[in-house]
Structures are given as structure tokens and as C-alpha cells.
């Protein structure tokens, strides 16, 4: 089983649209009926908007705990407020109240409260779902707005998707990753055989690509690059290509700026099924062909 993660660094480079197209293209080629999909962008889980899957299972996701003060036994000494390093306890006309959004769940206040008036409570921070999509089972999750622990939720989505791939003996786990370089990205990258970076030739896109490539390398995963919206700034494309060349990273090709992609999104379809002959559709198909060749070659890690 191969695990391919799609990343971008900067948001809005077209990562999810490309992932959806890959899911479609995989259903046509040697990976037909061999794919499990995982949407690891739990802050902004958009793959389902394109794939419009049938929901099969859904469960609550419990994240970290938050402190809760029992006002009946609290003696209003303020010790909790003074030990909290997350500014999560506020005094409100004599009462001390925990702001559950700011609370980090460290429980320092619990241990310092002289009257034992503070307890930790588990929070439901999102939902975890298993669906059937046109192109294979989809594992996805939605973090409630402002929720915590998205790295943990990403890990759950990936673990379940991977277990499904192993159970059904499916050969490809396709992971739509989150933007940035932090905890959710680290969770999305861990254990991947290959990371494809969907970047754009903009000053911001190039800046973030470098940081994301450093992160991927830091975790020992091989990276490839494809350049979306390539015709927006040809000099930027050259900059990306020479950067990749200098760092031994293969570029798999370019995708032109094409508003048909937005139309496909509205239609709830992958661009390659909505308008296979569109400039972006053709280019993504070409990238996919090169990508599958690399995937076949890459030695699967011991997982």
C-alpha cells in the first residue's frame, strides 16, 4: 500500500481540486477500486464538497479537556487565575470563570486550587466520518469552529483510512493535507511514502513552498512539486523550477490558471470528469500520469 499526501504550504493553491481530480483519475487507471481517500484538512474539510459522498458512519471526536470551576465551593482566592499561563481564567464580578476556548487543558489550576473546586471536563471538538464516494471510501472529519487538537484528529482520520486500505487490500491511500507547517501538517506527512506539493508561482506561494518542503524533509518524506496557475507569473515558475532543481526535487509539470476549476467545484465534480478537455483538466491528467509512474517506483516504507 502506498500513501500519497498532497500539500501546499500556502492555502488556496488548488490542492483539494487537484486531489479530487487525482481521485477521479485513479478510478480509471491501474488504481481503479484500489483507493482510500482521507481528508486531513480538518479545519476546512472540502473534499466532500466535490465528491458528494454517501455518509456511512459518524462519531463524535473528543479532544482535550478544559477546566470547570464549581462556583458553590470556590472561595474566590484567585490562585487559579494567577497560575494560568493561557489567560483562560477571568474574574467576573468576584466569580472566577474559565474561558473554554482559551483553556489549554493543562490542569495547573486544578492542582493549585486550595478547595478542590476545579475539575477537568472532556470536550467534544468535532466529528469523524466515514463515507462512500464515487472514487472509493472517504475518511474525513470536521473540527468544530475554534476546536483544538486538529493534529490528533488528523492522526485519527489517517489511522482509520490506513486500516481500511490494509483490510480491503487497497493499494493507494490518497491524503488531502492541510495548509501551513504545524501540528496538523506533521500528522498528515508522517508515514507518507510520497508528498506532492501543489504550489503556485506567486511570491507568497514560493515563500511557503520552501518552508513546507523543509518540513517534509525534516520528517524524511520524499517530495515532488507541481505548479498550479503557472501562467500567472512565468518568472515565478522559473524560480520554483530552479529551486527544486538545486534541491534535487522533481517537478512534475504545470497546470494553467483556468476558471473552469471553479465551475467544476460548483458542479460538485472533479475538473477531470467535469471538463476533461479543459486546459487544467488536461494538465492535471498529465501530472497524474507522471505521478503514478513515480509512485510505482517508490519503495513502500515499512508500515
Amino acid at each position: 500500500m502506498k500513501q500519497l499526501v498532497i500539500l501546499s504550504g500556502k492555502g488556496g493553491t488548488g490542492k483539494t481540486s487537484v486531489t479530487a481530480a487525482f481521485a477521479h483519475l485513479a478510478s480509471l487507471g491501474p488504481f481503479a477500486d484500489q483507493v482510500v481517500l482521507a481528508d486531513a484538512d480538518v479545519d476546512a474539510a472540502n473534499l466532500q464538497l466535490v465528491l458528494r459522498p454517501q455518509l456511512r458512519e459518524q462519531e463524535e471526536f473528543r479532544g482535550g479537556q478544559v477546566a470547570l470551576i464549581d462556583q458553590d465551593t470556590c472561595v474566590r482566592c484567585g490562585d487559579c487565575e494567577s497560575v494560568c499561563r493561557f489567560a483562560a481564567i477571568d474574574e467576573n464580578t468576584g466569580d472566577y470563570v474559565v474561558d473554554p476556548i482559551a483553556c489549554d487543558g493543562c490542569a495547573a489550576c486544578v492542582y493549585q486550587c486550595p478547595t478542590g473546586s476545579i475539575a477537568m471536563q472532556e470536550q467534544v471538538v468535532g466529528t469523524f466520518s466515514v463515507s462512500d464516494s464515487r472514487y472509493g471510501p472517504l475518511y474525513h472529519a470536521d473540527l468544530f469552529p475554534g476546536g483544538e487538537n486538529s493534529g490528533k484528529l488528523v492522526t485519527l482520520v489517517k489511522q482509520r483510512a490506513r486500516a481500511r486500505a490494509l483490510d480491503d487490500q487497497r493499494q493507494l491511500l490518497l491524503v488531502d493535507g492541510p495548509p501551513g507547517i504545524g501540528c496538523p501538517v506533521i500528522s498528515a506527512v508522517s508515514g507518507a511514502d510520497l508528498a506532492l506539493m501543489v504550489t503556485e508561482p506567486t511570491v507568497a506561494g514560493i515563500h511557503d513552498l520552501r518552508r513546507t518542503l523543509d518540513t517534509v524533509r525534516h520528517f524524511g518524506v520524499r517530495a515532488l512539486v507541481c505548479i498550479n496557475k503557472a501562467d500567472l507569473y512565468p518568472a515565478g515558475v522559473q524560480e520554483i523550477e530552479s529551486y527544486c532543481h538545486a534541491h534535487g526535487i522533481t517537478t512534475l509539470g504545470s497546470i494553467p490558471f483556468d476558471l473552469t476549476v471553479a465551475d467544476a467545484m460548483v458542479a460538485g465534480e472533479a475538473i477531470t470528469s467535469y471538463r476533461p478537455g479543459s486546459p487544467a483538466g488536461l494538465a492535471i491528467s498529465a501530472v497524474w500520469e507522471r505521478l503514478t509512474a513515480t509512485l510505482m517506483d517508490v519503495e513502500t516504507l515499512a508500515n
Binding site: Q159, S187, G191
Partner: peptide
């Protein structure tokens, strides 16, 4: 067998 070193990459791993 004896585990020679950490055999997977920790809490982020999936």
C-alpha cells in the same frame, strides 16, 4: 527479537 531502536516515529505517526 529485541527492539533495536524506536520502531515507528511517534505520536504523529499514522
Amino acid at each position: 527479537t529485541q527492539a533495536g531502536a524506536a520502531s515507528h516515529n511517534g505520536h504523529h505517526g499514522a
